[in-house]
């Protein structure tokens, strides 16, 4: 049975589904009280619910997908790390800024016996946790910690796995003062120079430069309902439409869904989600992720470091749409 607080984080388009589920629960309760066998009807209703869920989630608009990607119960970086690794130790600190960034976590782990470095943005599970995690908006120190861990991986020939889930890099006073732009830029360039496989996955929200700051890799994977945006639809609407309220239109126009990115030649692998989204069945989502990671890493590990670097450059080199007249 659903915990009571689930109602408060219900997405608007899930309403018919929840109504149906409530009816099922009601019938089951009544049947138990009156000792009537309604199992046939229940099975029918449950099948309808599954069908409805499938239908709703396969027809989501980009703005609705954004809601799923930002769902407070969507599995986070640390959730996935716990689910997929055999061994894991979080490592803190960028060795410079004098402050650890809880919005970007990372460490050493073992994935099916293979040592790897995993890092990613960390959102909070509730408001209090989100304040600590700064809503997954990393500071320059977070990006520098990420680079320090990636260098560590490079030194010990460990593949790098990054999980992206951020509304964007933190746009705060201190972040600017500490060189937010420089921290991200530095990672973009240096990730091209690393000699170990890098697999990046958008597990939730891929927000602009803050996502890209740990997002240059040999493979880019993305969960079905995740989004990846050049600017948040809200910001885009405020700038281009002069009306932040029109973010739905902006979400549509910006082409932010996994299918859009596949079409634009940016995404390598689209990971299907359990029906109802990753938050409906986190264990299954983690299995899908682990399977895909294992396949990618196994494949990439066979390449020589120089080949890896060269292919990584080629991957980004060909992104862009323009015409060239002779």
């Amino acid at each position: 049975m659903a915990p009571p607080e689930r109602k408060s984080i219900l997405l608007s388009f899930e309403k018919p589904l929840v109504e149906l589920e409530a009816r099922i629960a009601q019938i089951r309760e009544l049947a138990e009280e009156n000792d009537v066998d309604v199992s046939a009807q229940l099975r029918q209703l449950e099948a309808r619910a599954t069908h409805l869920r499938q239908e709703i989630f396969s027809n989501l608009t980009p703005a609705q997908r954004l809601q799923v990607a930002r769902h407070p119960r969507r599995p986070s970086t640390l959730d996935y790390i716990q689910a997929i690794t055999d061994d894991w130790l979080e490592l803190h600190g960028d060795r410079g800024s004098g402050k650890d960034d809880p919005a970007l976590v990372g460490g050493v782990a073992r994935l099916e016996g293979r040592p790897v470095v995993i890092l990613g943005h960390q959102k909070g599970r509730d408001t209090k946790d989100n304040v600590v995690r700064n809503f997954g908006m990393a500071s320059p120190g977070g990006y520098r910690k990420a680079m320090r861990l990636m260098r560590h991986a490079d030194r010990f020939s460990m593949p790098i796995i990054t999980f992206i889930d951020t509304p964007g890099a933190y746009p705060g006073y201190e972040a600017e003062e500490m060189g937010q732009g420089e921290a991200i830029a530095y990672n973009l360039r240096e990730m091209f120079g690393l000699t170990v496989p890098i697999v990046c996955t958008i597990i939730g929200e891929g927000g602009s430069g803050g996502a890209l700051g740990i997002g240059v890799g040999d493979r880019l994977m993305m969960f079905e309902h995740s989004v990846y945006t050049v600017a948040s639809p809200e910001a885009c609407a405020a700038i281009l439409w002069k009306d932040a309220g029109r973010s739905g239109e902006a979400a549509e126009a910006l082409k932010i869904t996994s299918w859009d990115l596949k079409q634009l030649g940016i995404l390598d692998e689209l990971l299907p989600e359990p029906v109802g989204g990753a938050h409906a069945n986190p264990i299954q989502a983690a299995d899908i992720l682990k399977q895909a990671l294992m396949e990618q890493i196994t494949e990439l590990s066979q390449l020589a470091p120089a080949t890896l670097q060269q292919l990584r450059y080629q991957k980004y080199r060909q992104i862009g749409v323009f015409a060239e007249a002779a």
Partner: peptide
């Protein structure tokens, strides 16, 4: 859209 964001990586 995202094609623009990816130019940051390409140039870097």
């Amino acid at each position: 859209g995202m094609l623009s964001l990816m130019q940051m990586a390409k140039i870097s």
